[in-house]
Amino acid sequence: MERAGWLFVLPLALVLAAGYVWPLMQAGVNSFHPNTPQGIDLGHWTDANYTKLLDPLYQSILERTLRISLIVSAITAVLAYPVAFFIARLKPKVQPWLILVYVSPWLVNTVVKSFGWSLLLRSNGVINTTLQHLGLIDAPLHLMLNETGVIIALVPGHFMFVLLPLWAAASGLDPNLKWAAGTLGAPPWQIFLRVTLPLTLPSLIAGLVINFTMNMTAFAAPAILGGVRARTVSFLAFEVNLEQLNWPLGGAIAVGLLAFTLAVVWGGQRLAFLAVRSGRTRP
């Protein structure tokens, strides 16, 4: 009986083993070999690729990526709360449609969206020409080819990863709790701080973890809106792998990025777990 079950599971397991586990491990192995002009030197082992990641140039790129990602996640958290609660209070029939509006841009590829943002943000783009036309500014604002442009594009780009879990948590919230708190004399901001926030915190954290890792590894938005002046880790990875063709170093970047992502996901889960517990035991 159980043996037949394995027959069902096996094809996918094999495809994933060959097309997923193996490539990742291959990249990991490559990262411990030196790079030569002729390609990867499989005869020798080295940790030079990893020590190279500590180079100040790479460190500054990593710092910028972290900075951008954190700012985007923070802005998203603040913006997603009101939207999630607004949607959760609508009629149940309307809610999926509005959610659909927020989700569907995610299914349009990021190159097209980043291109759209560049049309808005460039120095002779829609925003600058409009502001200049209205006489509000004299010289165009620098809205892209810097960190600002990347942040502007990433906030809506990864918005739904926070919105969805928050919406689910908000619509699952027992309204009696808030009324109970209200009748006990808590003003609205106290209700939010003491009831709503603790109860939705695990969902917020879960959403932010995904949001943050997506920000860290976004490619098209930083490439198109950040350019070489605001290079992020993924853009660096692109250069190292496809322009310098230094695959051992590229492999090291991949391993580092994967390890970092898994650490964030793991840490986020711990945090969400703790948040659930503290939410329960809060007096």
Partner: peptide
Amino acid sequence: PAVVFGIAMLQ
């Protein structure tokens, strides 16, 4: 991350 998997698949 797609970047990580992309690098791995490239190699």
